[in-house]
Each structure stands twice: as structure tokens, then as C-alpha cells.
Amino acid sequence: MDVGLTVGESIERTERTIEGFDLAELSIGEGSDPNEIDADRLESILADADADLCVHLPFEQVVATPVPELNDAIVDYLARLLEWAGAADARKAVLHGTARNPHDTDLRPLFADQLDAIGTAAADAGVELVVENVGHQKRGLPLSVLGDLADETGTAVCFDIGHAYMEDGDEGVDRFLSEYGDLVSHLHVHDARSRGDTHLPLGAGEIDYGVVRKYPVIRRYRD
């Protein structure tokens, strides 16, 4: 099992906190230029800690809109970031599963096309794309829709347990893992409360991790 931590955009935070972990998940801020990141320093920090790199693509960037020209630009933008991630030897890139209007069923085929194109760009860069469930957010696709589209496009999933709980409780976590657990190749693990608190330490919230632990995909990360 590889255990990592999210470090935001900060190399300094990475250096302070990475010891003892297997990977760091470095965020790329929307509109920031990853070429301004001190890649040599990042590589040295990770090498000293014997840790790998994952990246989180910009949180606010939607994947699909009704406008073809914007969709093309989104793919070009993310492909540029993925090229940098590949050059930095990142193993995975996390992409939020979002659309301009996630409840517009006409956008779902466009989302699939976008996801397929972004996945191709990731593969060309030598990075595994993993799409993250954020259905509790305004622009996040619902859990089952995200699962279906990830399955349709052959895209791996970053399953965020806390986000799934915020969207549909323990039942939503259970349902997603029972139907789409074989797609999960990356986990975000934190606790949450139904009143809106999230990204809490495990045990500080309401998630029933007994539900989570029964699935082989989760046991693979624990054993």
C-alpha cells in the first residue's frame, strides 16, 4: 500500500511534511504556470524522501461546457499541464469530474469526449489520469453518472470517500464501490459530517468506514 498526502501548491510544505510518506499530491493552481515550479528542488525533495509524485489538476477548471471552442481550449490547457506532469515523473493526475451544468444530460456525451481526450493527453505524457468524484459541489457530476462515464471511457477513478459521503451518505459510498469499485486506482481518505464539515481527521466525522473496508479495492490499499 502506498500512502501519500496532499501538499497544496507548496514545495516548502512538501519538504516539511513528506517524510514517511510514499507520495506527494501537488496541486497546480488555476492559471499558474507549472514551469515556474522549481522542478529540480521538487525532484530532490522527493528523492530524499524516496517518495513519488502525483499532481492535482486545477480545482476550478470544468471539464465540459456547451461551447466547442471552450472545450477544445480546456483540453489544450490540461494537456499542457499533463505534459509538465509527465516531465516531472508524476505517476497520476487527479481531475475533478465537473461540467458547466452537471445536471444537463446533453452535456454528458460532451463530458465523455472531453474525458477521453484528456485521458489520451495524459497517456501521451506517461501519466495515469484519475477522475475524482465531486458530486457534492455545484458543478460536480453525480456519483452514478461519473461512474458510468468513467467506465464508458476507460478512465480510472480517484474515489474521494468524504466527497461521496457528503453527496449521498454511507449508502452512496457503498453503492459506488459495489458498482464501480474496479475503476478505483487512487483514494482520497478523510472524514466528514453531514452538516457540511469535510476533510476532517478519520474518526472526527460520521463516515462508517466499516462500509468502506468490506470492498476488495479498499483492502488492496490497506494490505
Score class of each variant (00 low, 15 high):
residue 26 L to Q: 05
residue 216 P to A: 08
residue 117 A to M: 10
residue 128 E to N: 01
residue 48 D to H: 09
residue 135 G to I: 02
residue 52 D to I: 06
residue 141 L to S: 00
residue 175 R to I: 04
residue 46 L to Q: 02
residue 165 Y to P: 00
residue 183 L to I: 07
residue 151 D to R: 15
residue 31 G to Q: 07
residue 25 E to W: 01
residue 127 V to I: 05
residue 99 A to D: 04
residue 5 L to M: 15
residue 121 A to H: 04
residue 107 L to A: 10
residue 205 G to Q: 09
residue 31 G to R: 10
residue 167 E to M: 05
residue 110 L to Q: 11
residue 76 D to W: 02
residue 84 W to R: 06
residue 187 L to H: 14
residue 194 S to F: 08
residue 26 L to G: 06
residue 196 G to D: 14
residue 122 A to G: 01
residue 54 C to K: 02
residue 208 D to M: 11
residue 77 Y to S: 09
residue 169 G to V: 09
residue 39 A to S: 14
residue 186 H to K: 00
residue 54 C to I: 09
residue 52 D to S: 14
residue 189 V to A: 10
residue 180 Y to A: 02
residue 145 V to A: 12
residue 63 V to I: 15
residue 186 H to P: 00
residue 49 A to L: 07
residue 64 A to R: 00
residue 137 Q to G: 03
residue 58 P to Q: 04
residue 38 D to I: 08
residue 202 L to G: 03
residue 44 S to W: 06
residue 115 L to F: 07
residue 192 A to D: 09
residue 46 L to V: 05
residue 58 P to E: 11
residue 49 A to I: 11
residue 186 H to V: 02
residue 135 G to K: 03
residue 153 T to R: 13
residue 19 E to V: 12
residue 140 G to S: 02
residue 208 D to H: 08
residue 75 V to R: 03
residue 153 T to V: 14
residue 91 R to L: 11
residue 193 R to N: 12
residue 190 H to V: 07
residue 103 H to E: 09
residue 12 E to A: 14
residue 172 G to R: 02
residue 206 E to A: 06
residue 34 P to M: 01
residue 195 R to M: 07
residue 18 I to V: 15
residue 111 F to Q: 01
residue 176 F to H: 10
residue 100 R to S: 11
residue 105 T to R: 13
residue 78 L to V: 14
residue 217 V to D: 07
residue 115 L to M: 14
residue 10 S to H: 07
residue 119 G to W: 01
residue 170 D to E: 07
residue 30 E to R: 07
residue 70 L to V: 14
residue 47 A to W: 03
residue 65 T to D: 05
residue 209 Y to E: 03
residue 163 H to I: 11
residue 84 W to I: 08
residue 18 I to F: 08
residue 181 G to A: 10
residue 32 S to P: 00
residue 114 Q to T: 06
residue 161 I to V: 15
residue 124 D to N: 12
residue 52 D to Y: 08
residue 173 V to N: 03
residue 29 G to S: 14
residue 180 Y to V: 07
residue 170 D to K: 03
residue 98 T to V: 05
residue 100 R to E: 13
residue 42 L to K: 08
residue 215 Y to P: 00
residue 13 R to M: 15
residue 136 H to Q: 13
residue 12 E to H: 11
residue 60 E to W: 12
residue 72 D to P: 00
residue 92 K to G: 00
residue 9 E to V: 09
residue 71 N to K: 03
residue 194 S to A: 15
residue 144 S to M: 13
residue 59 F to V: 13
residue 99 A to I: 06
residue 108 R to Q: 13
residue 170 D to G: 03
residue 73 A to H: 10
residue 2 D to R: 12
residue 150 A to Q: 05
residue 54 C to E: 10
residue 223 D to N: 15
residue 81 L to E: 03
residue 149 L to F: 04
residue 118 I to A: 05
residue 149 L to K: 05
residue 2 D to A: 10
residue 93 A to T: 11
residue 207 I to H: 01
residue 79 A to H: 00
residue 178 S to W: 02
residue 173 V to M: 01
residue 5 L to P: 00
residue 4 G to E: 04
residue 89 D to K: 14
residue 192 A to K: 11
residue 34 P to N: 02
residue 109 P to Q: 04
